[in-house]
Amino acid sequence: MIIDDLALLDQPNQQFQGFGLIRGAQLAQTKKGDPFYNLSIAKGPKELPVKVWSDQINGREEEVKEVLQEGRIIYFEGDTSTYQDQLQVTARSFRPVKENEVNLSEYLETAPEPIEDLQKELEGYIEEIMDPLIQEIVSTVYTKYKKPFSSYPAAVKNHHSFVGGLLYHTVCMIRLGRDVSRRYPSVNKDFIIGGITLHDASKILEYTNHIAPQYSVPGEFIGHISMSSMLVDREVQKILAARGEKAQLTKLEQEAVYQLQHCILSHHGRLEWGSPVEPKTLEAHIIHLIDMIDSRINMIDRGLAEAPEGHFTKVFPLGKIYKPSIDE
Rank of each mutant, 00 (worst) to 15 (best):
M230R: 05
I204G: 09
G219T: 06
S229I: 05
S216G: 06
A247P: 07
V232R: 01
R234S: 15
R234N: 15
L252I: 07
M227G: 08
R234G: 14
A256I: 00
Q248C: 06
Q248S: 13
P213S: 03
A241C: 05
L231E: 15
H210Q: 11
L249I: 01
Y207C: 04
S226Y: 07
L205E: 10
L231G: 09
E253L: 04
I222D: 01
A242F: 03
E255L: 14
V236R: 06
L240D: 14
K246F: 13
G219F: 08
Y215S: 10
G223L: 08
S228D: 10
G244S: 10
E255T: 03
V236F: 05
L252P: 01
S216M: 05
S229K: 03
R243K: 14
I211R: 01
E245T: 13
L231H: 12
S228R: 00
Q237H: 00
L231W: 07
N209C: 03
F221Q: 04
A247V: 03
S228G: 05
I225K: 02
T250G: 15
P213H: 02
L240I: 11
N209R: 00
G223T: 02
H224Q: 09
I222N: 00
S216Q: 09
R243C: 12
A212C: 07
D233R: 01
G223M: 08
H224E: 13
K246T: 07
S226N: 11
I225N: 08
E206A: 05
H210V: 00
Y215W: 10
G244N: 12
Y215A: 09
Y215N: 12
E255S: 13
S216A: 05
V217P: 07
G219M: 11
Y215Q: 11
E253V: 02
M227T: 06
E235G: 02
R234L: 15
G219E: 11
E206G: 02
M230S: 14
K246I: 01
V236Y: 07
H210E: 15
L240H: 09
Y207K: 03
H224G: 05
E253A: 01
K246W: 09
E245Y: 14
L240P: 14
Q248M: 12
G223I: 08
A242T: 03
I239T: 06
G219W: 11
K246C: 09
L205D: 10
S226T: 03
Y207M: 12
T250M: 06
A242E: 15
L231P: 10
D233E: 13
R243E: 14
K251H: 10
A242G: 08
